[in-house]
Design a protein around this nucleic acid. Structure first.
Lengths: 198, 198
DNA sequence: GTCTATAGTGCGATAGAC
DNA sequence: GTCTATCGCACTATAGAC
């Protein structure tokens, strides 16, 4: 008899998403998830530090993608050029085939405040990591933090649009549009509005 | 016998902050907080839906301040002008006398991931509310969401600076500096910056 | 792998305020 | 009388300790 199979975490993740989607997040216990793939509750918590975490594995890949997209930029690139590179790289993780999976996962998250909190936290960690990378490349404060936070904001808005009903454009295209929108938006402000735009 | 005194929530909040600061957040039980002001654990949970929430009451005031700062702007104000107005208004909640209290509270939050999650969530709710207000004023998407998220980003960075050791400038001044920094930062980007030749 | 503390809920009882 | 804050108890799930 097979005592354990490879990919335990992955099987737990898949089972959890299914159960959460059909029965609701709070109505699904960690023990149920574990049992549905032939494991014990104790094993579930050895793989995931808490119940929410089972939905958020894979975020490390997102962080790596963002960082990877920065390293390929030229040495004298401006902060927002680094951000643009990071966003382009991150878009690779969101091919068309993954759209429906992302939609299902997001629908679960949207229905539970605790999961929304965890999602925000992960984005926050991503922003902090990006800030570190920007500072390591010589970007000063507060520009590094502002650029990093703007990157996650643009990513978040773009992702929301990417999974919205009827949307068919690839992620990278949506990201570029959002980034351009942010630039236009901030260019128009106090003492610098449309009237002063000459 | 006085069964209850007014301001129960406030007394619980003050007691909780003290206990968290001296004994640590996780080492402090809800029952201890309640007992320290002569109440039971059950009553604590009547006032706060969960243990973390006791540190985050008062955020409603922040939301109101942001919204109030928007309503006073002229009808044809650009989105980022509305954001600027909201930030100015919010700064009133952070007078010099509150700086040390804010520092203590933040030191507790910084030491616990669960509290950081809640803080991010509250910021996220604030951003969503601001987005609604901007849309109500006729700002289109995705500009409304981007402007709202940028507002909370600038606020967050400004607040971090405001409570940093040795900082003496008033909140409103720091906010203005951060907003200007964001404008400069986003103005320089792909196809539009010093490194981006013609 | 078991054992335990704590977070958090549900319900009924009680003590005041009005 | 009504309304609401508090209490007390039983209970489950999470999560950490042993």
């Amino acid at each position: 008899m097979v005592r354990w199979q490879p990919g335990t975490s992955e099987r737990l993740q898949a089972a959890a998403l299914e159960l959460f989607a059909s029965n609701g997040y709070e109505q699904t216990t960690a023990a149920e998830i574990a049992q549905s793939v032939g494991l014990t509750e104790r094993t579930f918590f050895r793989h995931f530090s808490d119940k929410r975490e089972v939905l958020f594995r894979g975020q490390e890949l997102l962080v790596e993608a963002f960082l990877g997209g920065m390293t390929t930029a030229p040495g004298d690139a401006a902060p927002m050029e680094l951000v643009a590179g990071a966003l382009e790289s991150a878009a690779d993780l969101f091919p068309a085939e993954r759209r429906d999976h992302s939609r299902l996962r997001q629908s679960v998250i949207d229905q539970n405040p605790a999961l929304q909190e965890r999602e925000r936290h992960k984005m926050s960690v991503l922003a902090a990591t990006l800030g570190d990378a920007l500072r390591a490349r010589g970007v000063a404060e507060p520009a590094a933090t502002l650029a990093a936070e703007s990157a996650t904001t643009v990513f978040g808005v773009a992702f929301t649009q990417w999974i919205s009903p009827g949307e068919t454009r690839p992620m990278v295209e949506i990201e570029r549009a959002m980034l351009a929108e942010l630039r236009d938006l901030t260019a128009v402000g106090p003492g610098n509005g449309p009237a002063a735009k000459a």
